[in-house]
Computed example of a mutant assay.
Amino acid sequence: MPNWGYIALIVLAFYIIASVALYYLQEYFIFKPEKLDKDFQFHYNNQIIEEYNLETRDGAIINGLHFKVKNPKGVVLYLKGNSKSIKGWGKFAVDFTRHGYDVLMLDYRGFGKSTGRRSFKAIKRDLQFVYNRIKDKVDEKYIILYGRSMGSGFAAKLASINNPKMLILDAPYYSLSKVAAKFIPFMPVSLIMRYPIPTYKWLKYVNCPIHIIHGTHDKLIPFKSSVKLSKIRPKLTRLYTIIGGGHKNLNNFESYHKMLGEIINSRVKRLNLSDTSIGVMHSSKKVNA
């Protein structure tokens, strides 16, 4: 007869060891950074760029790029996903500069040329530091926050404590903890996640227009996560659907570029609903012919 108590202790021990390992090693699963040499030269065809290095209060260096246009309508702070560096992500700046907007991109700590010890708190502090530097030169009503995948959560955080013109979320998740739970359903994710990134919590405090773009065939972050997010601040939110879009290919859809152009070039108009059908109830009574 098997000793069930002994077996249970072994299983529990393995469970605890796995939980501790995931707690300390999760950065290797979450972040996929690309390191760049300090003397690496950025180049993009038909783009005017200026590289910047900002030193934080703890001595870290945040490296980024400023894509410039003449007489900009505003500036887009583009927060990228969890992989590579701005060397590759920079190609997406053209989707905004073509509409007359400057674009600022940065690498998180440990990505590209950026340095410093990475932590959830440090990343949030770095992004607010960069936002403040932009705000010193540009009125907030001209600042657009754009968050892509992992960056969508951090963009929501910035929007929740600042007053940008608008917030655009590209393939956002409800929370990173929810995404992790999908892959490790039997682990105590809520306890071990050092980067929970609860987008849904931060959206509750956003007061600017919120635009959410998501592909219906996204296998990493399901489309339904954006549906749930759109219900948090429904009066401020509009959900844009890319039929057939996956997680990494929305830029290859004409509909994406059409939607993006409509979003960043739109002007918020007040609606007069007094002469519409809103509030009109359908009668359930039979009406004589």
Rank of each mutant, 00 (worst) to 15 (best):
M1W: 09
A8W: 11
V11N: 06
F14N: 10
F14G: 11
I16S: 00
Y23N: 07
L25Q: 14
Y28Q: 09
F29H: 06
I30N: 00
F31A: 04
L36Y: 02
L36C: 04
D37N: 12
D39F: 03
D39L: 06
Q41Y: 04
H43N: 08
Y44M: 04
Y44G: 06
N46G: 01
I49D: 02
E51A: 01
N53V: 09
N53W: 04
N53I: 05
L54N: 11
T56N: 13
I61S: 04
L65D: 00
H66M: 04
H66N: 02
K68N: 07
K68I: 07
V69I: 10
K70N: 13
G74C: 06
K80E: 09
G81A: 08
I86Q: 01
G88P: 00
F92A: 10
V94W: 09
F96Y: 13
G100C: 11
Y101W: 00
L104I: 14
G110Y: 10
R117M: 07
F120W: 10
F120V: 01
I123E: 03
L127I: 15
Q128M: 15
F129I: 12
V130R: 03
Y131P: 09
Y131G: 05
N132E: 14
N132Q: 14
R133S: 15
D139G: 03
I144V: 11
L145K: 03
L145R: 01
Y146P: 05
G147A: 02
R148C: 05
G151W: 02
G153V: 01
A155E: 01
A156C: 10
K157N: 05
I161D: 13
I161L: 12
P164I: 07
K165P: 02
M166R: 11
L169E: 09
A171G: 06
Y174E: 00
S175N: 11
L176M: 11
S177A: 12
K178F: 07
A180W: 01
F183N: 05
P185S: 06
S190R: 10
L191G: 05
Y195V: 08
Y200Q: 11
W202D: 13
K204Q: 14
N207K: 15
I213G: 07
I213A: 03
I221R: 07
K224N: 13
S226G: 13
S226T: 08
L229E: 00
S230A: 15
K231W: 01
I232H: 05
T237W: 10
T241S: 00
I242V: 13
K248N: 15
L250A: 09
N252K: 14
F253E: 12
S255Q: 12
H257W: 14
M259G: 08
L260A: 05
I263T: 04
I263D: 02
I264D: 10
N265D: 11
N265V: 05
S266D: 13
R267E: 15
K269L: 13
K269H: 06
L271V: 08
S274L: 12
S277I: 14
I278S: 08
G279K: 05
V280W: 06
S283C: 00
S284D: 05
K285E: 08
